[in-house]
Simulated assay, not measured.
Amino acid sequence: MGRACFWPFCWGGVLLLAASSASAADNAGKASPRQRLASARTWGYWLQAPDLNALGRAGLDLVVVDYSRTGRDEDRFTREEIAGLRDAGTLVLAYFSVGEAETYRFYWEEEWADDPPGFMGPENPDWPGNFKVRYWKRSWWTVLKAYLDRIAEAGFDGVYLDIVDAYWFWGSQDDSLTMRADDMVRLIGRVAKYGRKAAGRDFLVVMQNGLGIVEHASESRQRDLLASIDGVGVESLFFNTTAEDAAYRIRLLARYAEHGSKLMNVEYVPAADMERYCVDARGTGLPMLLYRADPDRMLDELVPQK
Score class of each variant (00 low, 15 high):
residue 95 Y to G: 06
residue 249 R to Y: 06
residue 77 F to I: 06
residue 7 W to G: 08
residue 86 R to Y: 00
residue 257 A to C: 11
residue 260 G to C: 11
residue 216 H to W: 11
residue 68 S to N: 03
residue 214 V to N: 00
residue 273 D to S: 14
residue 228 S to N: 13
residue 78 T to G: 12
residue 269 V to I: 15
residue 224 D to I: 02
residue 165 D to H: 07
residue 198 A to E: 07
residue 230 D to I: 09
residue 34 R to L: 11
residue 187 L to H: 04
residue 42 T to L: 08
residue 286 L to R: 12
residue 149 D to M: 01
residue 234 V to R: 10
residue 39 S to D: 10
residue 245 D to A: 15
residue 298 M to Y: 07
residue 253 L to A: 08
residue 14 V to Q: 15
residue 225 L to C: 05
residue 25 A to Q: 12
residue 182 D to K: 00
residue 22 A to P: 04
residue 226 L to C: 06
residue 265 N to S: 13
residue 225 L to A: 00
residue 73 D to Y: 13
residue 183 D to P: 02
residue 221 R to I: 01
residue 216 H to G: 06
residue 182 D to Q: 05
residue 124 N to V: 11
residue 104 Y to L: 09
residue 178 T to D: 03
residue 301 E to C: 13
residue 30 K to M: 12
residue 17 L to G: 08
residue 236 S to R: 13
residue 278 C to P: 07
residue 290 L to Y: 07
residue 306 K to G: 07
residue 104 Y to F: 14
residue 121 G to I: 09
residue 169 F to W: 03
residue 3 R to P: 08
residue 175 D to C: 09
residue 61 D to S: 11
residue 88 A to R: 05
residue 65 V to C: 11
residue 151 I to V: 01
residue 8 P to Q: 12
residue 30 K to R: 15
residue 49 A to C: 00
residue 23 S to D: 15
residue 97 S to L: 04
residue 194 Y to S: 06
residue 275 E to A: 11
residue 111 E to W: 05
residue 301 E to D: 12
residue 151 I to M: 01
residue 245 D to G: 12
residue 286 L to Q: 13
residue 172 S to E: 00
residue 112 W to T: 07
residue 265 N to L: 10
residue 175 D to Y: 04
residue 40 A to G: 09
residue 149 D to F: 00
residue 301 E to F: 07
residue 258 E to I: 09
residue 220 S to P: 03
residue 256 Y to F: 15
residue 43 W to M: 08
residue 292 R to L: 11
residue 208 Q to V: 09
residue 204 L to V: 10
residue 203 F to Q: 01
residue 121 G to P: 02
residue 99 G to Q: 02
residue 303 V to I: 14
residue 76 R to I: 02
residue 190 R to C: 06
residue 68 S to Y: 09
residue 21 S to K: 15
residue 108 W to C: 05
residue 149 D to Y: 07
residue 181 A to V: 11
residue 242 T to C: 06
residue 34 R to E: 03
residue 96 F to C: 01
residue 259 H to R: 14
residue 265 N to A: 13
residue 123 E to F: 07
residue 285 G to A: 12
residue 226 L to S: 10
residue 203 F to C: 00
